[in-house]
């Protein structure tokens, strides 16, 4: 039970990272982006490629910092992957969503994002195959914190949680302490008013995609570090990140963070209530509960 709770918090951190960008995109561009979760997969695969390349160029970088399985090359690769993923999010917006925004309504974008997700996922499958990939072939054994009840933690898990929280804290500082952060919040809260106040919407859209892409890439890498990587990574996270944004209230960054942890913990505990086969439906049940109890989420405003 406690073990499931701990694991849920860890998965929650990954979901939160993914949900931060999604909630901003959904609020600012006013559409449910079904392609968003693919950014996690793009990020993780990009990190995989950079990690292999760096390790080949400079084998010294490839030694893991024990007891972690993280190496210097992977850390560098993650930073590169965050940049690449942010850039690819901007490119997709520029190629597809921006053009559709100009022509049709937000709902056409929802469907376009369906198409984009399909293209990205299958392009990844073509390039890397269906099989599970790993950053490191070594099995990182967990440390036993307690035997009764059994509580196990892996060093990688602690690292991932700390790194995810650090990223969120950094983003919090940007949001609250910089003029860029003010502008971003202004746009998120009221795009029209912000434009009147002199914020350039197009610049902000690019910024949101960059931030969302970067955070998602980190989420994808963190996830892969303690699990495994397959082309389905993105689609697997789609419903959880959607659930997190809805729990938090669309448009609320802090709501998304909290929502991510809630969804993660609930999914972690789901086996206590549901037979194992029903686990994929857990985020849906959370969405259902929110819709029944508090339709605008924890921090969402009422806007029909």
């Amino acid at each position: 039970m406690i073990q499931n709770l701990l694991d849920g918090i860890l998965t929650g951190a990954v979901i939160s990272l993914g949900a931060i960008g999604l909630t901003m995109v959904m609020h600012m561009l006013r559409f449910a982006n079904f392609a968003y979760a693919e950014l996690l997969a793009i990020g993780a695969y990009a990190a995989l490629v950079f990690d292999r390349v760096l390790a080949a160029l400079a084998p010294a970088l490839a030694t893991a910092f024990k007891p972690l399985t993280v190496s210097a090359s992977l850390a560098l690769a993650t930073l590169l992957a965050m940049a690449i993923t942010g850039a690819s999010a901007v490119v997709v917006d520029w190629l597809v969503f921006r053009r559709i925004r100009a022509k049709a309504d937000a709902l056409s974008m929802v469907f376009a994002s369906f198409g984009v997700a399909l293209i990205i996922r299958n392009a990844i499958t073509l390039a890397f195959g269906h099989n599970a990939q790993l950053f490191s072939q070594d099995i990182a054994f967990a440390t036993v914190l307690s035997t009764d009840p059994l509580i196990l933690v892996k060093a990688d898990q602690v690292f991932v949680l700390v790194a995810a929280l650090a990223l969120m804290a950094a983003f919090h500082i940007v949001l609250t302490r910089t003029s860029f952060g003010f502008a971003l919040r202004a746009v998120a809260e009221n795009p029209t008013l912000a434009q009147v106040a002199g914020v350039r919407l197009s610049t902000m859209i690019v910024a949101v995609w960059l931030i969302g892409g970067g955070l998602s890439a980190a989420a994808g890498v963190f996830y892969t570090l303690t699990n495994h990587l397959s082309p389905a990574l993105g689609s697997n996270f789609l419903l959880p990140v959607f659930a997190a944004t809805i729990v938090g209230g669309i448009g609320s960054v802090y709501g998304a963070v909290l929502g991510g942890f809630l969804v993660g913990v609930a999914s972690g505990l789901s086996l206590a209530v549901l037979p194992s086969g029903y686990v994929p439906a857990m985020p849906f049940l959370i969405i259902l509960a929110v819709l029944l109890l508090r339709p605008h989420g924890l921090f969402g405003e009422d806007q029909a």
């Binding site: 079904f34 937000a106 439906a281 049940l285 819709l291 339709p295 806007q303 029909a304």
Partner: peptide
């Protein structure tokens, strides 16, 4: 449940229904 809310909710809820029914 969803039609009073903004359109995203219906999209996401119906997407979830399919996964739950599966």
């Amino acid at each position: 449940l969803t039609l009073r809310l903004r359109h995203d909710y219906l999209a996401i809820a119906t997407f979830g229904v399919a996964i739950a029914l599966e």
